[in-house]
């Protein structure tokens, strides 16, 4: 087993190798890498993998880690079912 096979995103099974390859191809933002490789879109919504990917981007590109970590957060955090949304509405 090589370093490239290390799993970075456990939710979507994305390896370090894939991430490195994308960065080398010029995808140097979390948003792009997320859209191409789906990492960060799993059940944990990137809590686990995002910092690791950001570190990899910083290591390869020399970009400032804070710039890299800036990303959009969108609700609803933790998720909610349609039924639960409707139930809240029924109370009105």
């Amino acid at each position: 087993m090589r370093e490239d096979d290390i799993i970075i995103c456990r939710c979507e099974d994305v390896t370090l190798g894939t991430i490195r390859e994308l960065i080398r191809q010029g995808y140097t933002t979390l948003e792009e890498i997320k859209r191409i490789a789906r990492c960060g879109m799993g059940p944990c919504q990137g809590k686990t993998c995002t910092p690791l990917i950001a570190r990899e981007i910083a290591a390869i590109t020399g970009k400032d880690i804070h710039e890299i970590m800036k990303q959009n957060h969108r609700p609803p955090f933790g998720g909610i079912t349609f039924e639960e949304i409707v139930s809240g509405r029924d109370e009105e």
Binding site: R74, P75, P76, G79, I80, T81, F82, E83, V86
Partner: peptide, 15 residues
Amino acid sequence: TYLLPAIKKVRVVRQ
């Protein structure tokens, strides 16, 4: 939930 009732227990994760 009206049109496709079967998915009412599916979780919205992002908007």
